[in-house]
Computed example of a mutant assay.
Amino acid sequence: MIDAVNPSTVWSPFGPFSMAALQGDGQIVHLKGQVSLDQQGKIVGRGNMHAQVRQTLENIRAVMASMGGDMSDVFSLVHYTTDIDAFMRAGEIRNEYFAAPWPVTTTVQVVRLYHQDLLIEITATAEIPRSRFRRPAS
């Protein structure tokens, strides 16, 4: 179980994120930065931030599911984007994947990602309850 922390002593979150998250007794999982690649490793949504955000979050969901987790287990995200304005316009997509308590979030604009057609990379940290966690096959 992830508990959100939004103290009244700092500014209130203006979007779908929490200021801090407390982790409990589960298995902590650190996900590699995910990008908009399909199962065959082909880029999805060239030039389309909405499509790339959606595919990237679907990849995170798939990695989580492979260990018995779901998106509600994610408590921290870092977004690396080549266009922060386009990323902010695609923000409503996150509401399809996350609900309160929102993951803590950091967003950074970068010059480019490892491939020039990629617009977004997202890293995640999650805690999957031990009752659901299963170690993926090697």
Rank of each mutant, 00 (worst) to 15 (best):
P103R: 12
A126C: 10
T123H: 05
S76R: 14
M19P: 00
R130D: 07
D25V: 12
I84C: 02
S76T: 11
R54N: 09
T9R: 07
V110N: 01
V111S: 08
V44I: 15
R89P: 02
M1C: 06
L77T: 04
T105Y: 08
P103L: 12
F98A: 05
F14K: 14
A65G: 07
V78M: 08
A62Q: 13
T105A: 10
H30E: 11
I28Y: 07
T125M: 06
V108G: 03
I43F: 02
T56Y: 02
V111I: 08
F14L: 13
Q23D: 04
M64Q: 04
S131Y: 12
R61F: 03
S138R: 15
L118E: 00
L118W: 02
G69Q: 05
R89S: 04
M64I: 10
Y114G: 01
T123E: 00
E92P: 03
Q34V: 04
H79G: 00
V63C: 01
L119F: 01
D83Y: 05
Q34M: 13
S131L: 15
E58H: 12
T81N: 07
V44Y: 03
F14M: 13
G69F: 05
R89A: 07
L37K: 05
L77A: 04
A100C: 08
V10S: 05
Q34K: 13
A51G: 02
E96I: 12
R54T: 10
Q55M: 10
R61C: 03
I28Q: 12
F17Q: 03
I93V: 13
D117C: 02
N6Y: 09
P13E: 08
G68R: 11
L118V: 02
T105Q: 11
V74A: 02
P7C: 12
D25P: 04
S36I: 03
K42M: 08
L22V: 14
H115I: 00
G69L: 06
F75A: 02
P13G: 08
D3A: 12
F133M: 11
G41D: 04
M71V: 09
S72D: 10
G47L: 03
N95P: 01
T105K: 12
V10G: 02
R94E: 09
I43Q: 01
A137E: 15
F75W: 11
H79W: 01
A65D: 06
Q55D: 03
I84W: 04
A51D: 06
G68V: 11
D85R: 14
V104A: 12
M49R: 02
P7V: 14
Q109C: 06
M64W: 04
A86T: 04
M1E: 08
Q39D: 13
A126E: 03
L119E: 00
